[in-house]
Deep mutational scan, measured.
Amino acid sequence: TYTWNTKEEAKQAFKELLKEKRVPSNASWEQAMKMIINDPRYSALAKLSEKKQAFNAYKVQTE
């Protein structure tokens, strides 16, 4: 089980997950979700809006 003390740690864990699963920077949210949804870190960020925000930040960083 994973635990995160801060929102920032949770966001980092979520981005690490995207990186580890090699989600391409041109992937849509739907494509990315299919690649990461079974990992416990997918739940790091509770709100869908937070997940999408972190995903978009990840995409910008990896382009």
Rank of each mutant, 00 (worst) to 15 (best):
K47A: 12
A10E: 06
T62K: 08
L17E: 00
S28W: 02
W4H: 06
F14S: 00
E63I: 13
N5Y: 11
E50Q: 06
E20M: 05
N5S: 11
Y42T: 01
S43W: 11
E30W: 08
A46R: 11
A44T: 04
A46K: 12
E63A: 10
N38M: 10
M33K: 14
L45F: 04
N5P: 11
R41S: 02
W29R: 00
T3W: 10
A54P: 01
F55G: 02
V23N: 02
A32S: 03
Q12C: 12
A32F: 01
N26W: 14
P40W: 11
P40M: 07
E16A: 14
A54C: 10
E30T: 09
L45Y: 03
M35Q: 07
Q12H: 12
A54K: 02
T6F: 04
A57K: 10
Q31F: 10
I37E: 12
K51S: 02
Q12A: 12
Q12I: 12
Y2G: 15
P40C: 08
S25D: 06
T62W: 13
P24M: 03
R22W: 06
Q31A: 09
A46D: 14
N38P: 04
Q61H: 09
S28Y: 04
S49C: 10
D39T: 01
Y58C: 03
Q61K: 08
S28M: 07
S25T: 14
N26K: 07
T1G: 15
T3G: 09
V23T: 03
R41I: 03
N5M: 08
E30C: 08
K19F: 15
T62V: 14
K47I: 06
Q53I: 09
S43H: 15
S43K: 14
N38A: 10
K19C: 13
I37H: 14
K21L: 06
K59Q: 10
E9W: 03
P24A: 06
K11H: 15
Y2E: 14
M33R: 14
L17N: 00
T3S: 09
N5G: 11
S28T: 14
N38I: 06
T3V: 15
E30I: 09
K21M: 10
D39E: 04
P24N: 04
I36R: 00
K52A: 03
S49V: 06
S28A: 07
D39C: 03
Y58L: 03
A46M: 11
N26P: 03
A32N: 00
Q31V: 11
W29I: 02
N26D: 15
N38D: 12
L17Q: 00
L48F: 06
K7P: 15
K34W: 09
E50F: 03
K21D: 01
Y58N: 03
N26F: 09
D39P: 00
L48Q: 11
A57S: 10
T6S: 08
E50R: 03
K11Q: 15
K7H: 12
K7E: 12
D39N: 01
Y2Q: 15
F14L: 02
W4Y: 13
Q31H: 07
A27I: 09
S43I: 08
L17M: 12
T6P: 03
K11R: 12
Q53R: 11
Q53H: 10
N38G: 15
K51F: 04
A27V: 06
A46L: 07
Y58E: 03
S49G: 11
M35R: 05
E9C: 06
N26R: 07
K34Q: 12
N56G: 08
V23G: 02
F55Q: 02
D39S: 02
A54G: 03
F55V: 03
R22G: 13
M35P: 00
E20Y: 05
A46H: 09
K21Y: 09
P40I: 12
W4S: 06
E50S: 05
Y58T: 02
N26T: 11
E8C: 10
Q31K: 06
E16V: 05
T1Y: 13
V60S: 12
W4G: 08
Q53L: 10
I37F: 12
N38V: 06
Q53F: 06
N26S: 11
Y58A: 02
M35S: 06
W29N: 00
T1D: 15
Y58G: 02
W29M: 02
T6V: 05
E16W: 04
K19Q: 15
K47R: 09
A27F: 11
N26Y: 14
S49N: 11
Y42C: 03
Y42Q: 01
I36S: 01
M33V: 14
S28P: 08
N38F: 09
A54V: 11
T3F: 10
E30V: 08
